[in-house]
Amino acid sequence: MDNDSGDDAVWQTALDWLMREHEETLSDVDREALHAWLAVSSLHRRVFHEAEQLWMLTGLIPSGDERN
């Protein structure tokens, strides 16, 4: 559990971005919004970096179809 609700909000926003990007191609406006969000604080950048590292790792796990 995240004991800091602020951290959790940042984490959830990072997930929002990754999930959006997974489902659609982000427009230039979207990318600018993401960069603006990242530029706000080093916390945003750190948490986003953790989220995308985890996202990358989960992408390496074969799906059920690929395993059988």
Binding site: P62, E66, R67
Partner: peptide, 10 residues
């Protein structure tokens, strides 16, 4: 860590 049976799609 895993076995992959459908390597091309993976």
């Amino acid at each position: 860590l895993f076995e992959v049976k459908q390597p091309i799609s993976y």
